[in-house]
Amino acid sequence: MNILIIEDETPAFKKLFAYVTESLKSDFEYTHTRSVNESISYLEKMSYDLILSDIKIIGGMSFDIFNAIEVSTPIIFCTAFDEHLLQAFKTNGIAYILKPYAQKDIDEALNKYQSLFHKKFNEKDFFQQFKVVIEQKNSYKKRFAIKKPEGIKLVNTEDVCYIEACGDFCKFKDTNAELHSISKSIGLLCSELNPEHFFRINRSYIVNITFIEKIVSYSKNRLSIKVKGLSNSLITSTATTKDFRQWIDR
Rank of each mutant, 00 (worst) to 15 (best):
F121L: 00
F121C: 00
F121Y: 00
F121K: 00
F121D: 00
F121Q: 00
N122Q: 09
N122C: 06
N122K: 06
E123M: 02
E123K: 08
E123Q: 05
E123F: 01
K124A: 00
D125V: 04
D125Y: 10
D125A: 15
D125Q: 14
F126Q: 04
F127Q: 13
Q128K: 14
Q128I: 01
Q129I: 01
Q129E: 13
Q129R: 14
Q129P: 03
F130E: 13
F130R: 12
F130C: 15
K131W: 10
K131R: 15
K131L: 13
K131P: 13
V132D: 12
V132G: 11
V132N: 14
V132K: 15
V132F: 06
V132Y: 13
V133L: 15
V133F: 04
V133T: 15
V133S: 14
I134M: 13
I134F: 11
I134N: 12
E135I: 07
E135Q: 11
E135H: 06
E135Y: 01
Q136S: 12
Q136W: 00
Q136H: 11
K137G: 01
K137Y: 00
K137T: 08
K137M: 03
N138K: 12
N138L: 12
N138A: 12
N138R: 12
S139T: 05
S139G: 08
Y140Q: 08
Y140T: 10
Y140P: 09
K141V: 06
K141Y: 02
K141G: 03
K141T: 08
K141A: 09
K141N: 07
K142Y: 00
K142W: 02
R143M: 04
R143Y: 02
R143Q: 09
F144W: 05
F144T: 05
F144N: 11
F144K: 09
A145F: 11
A145Y: 13
A145D: 10
A145I: 02
I146G: 11
I146A: 11
I146Q: 11
I146H: 07
K147M: 04
K147E: 06
K148D: 02
P149W: 09
P149E: 14
E150F: 04
E150A: 08
E150R: 15
E150Y: 11
E150G: 05
G151P: 01
G151V: 00
G151I: 04
G151S: 09
I152F: 01
I152T: 04
I152W: 03
I152P: 03
I152S: 11
K153T: 03
K153C: 05
K153D: 03
K153E: 09
K153V: 07
K153G: 01
L154V: 06
L154F: 13
V155T: 05
V155Q: 06
V155C: 07
N156A: 10
N156T: 03
T157M: 04
T157A: 06
T157H: 04
E158K: 13
E158V: 11
E158P: 01
E158W: 00
E158T: 10
D159A: 05
V160E: 02
V160G: 07
V160L: 05
V160H: 08
V160A: 05
V160F: 10
V160K: 12
C161Q: 14
C161I: 11
C161F: 07
Y162C: 06
Y162H: 06
Y162G: 02
Y162L: 07
Y162K: 08
I163K: 09
I163L: 12
I163E: 07
I163C: 08
I163S: 08
E164K: 15
E164C: 14
A165W: 04
A165Y: 09
A165T: 03
A165I: 05
A165N: 12
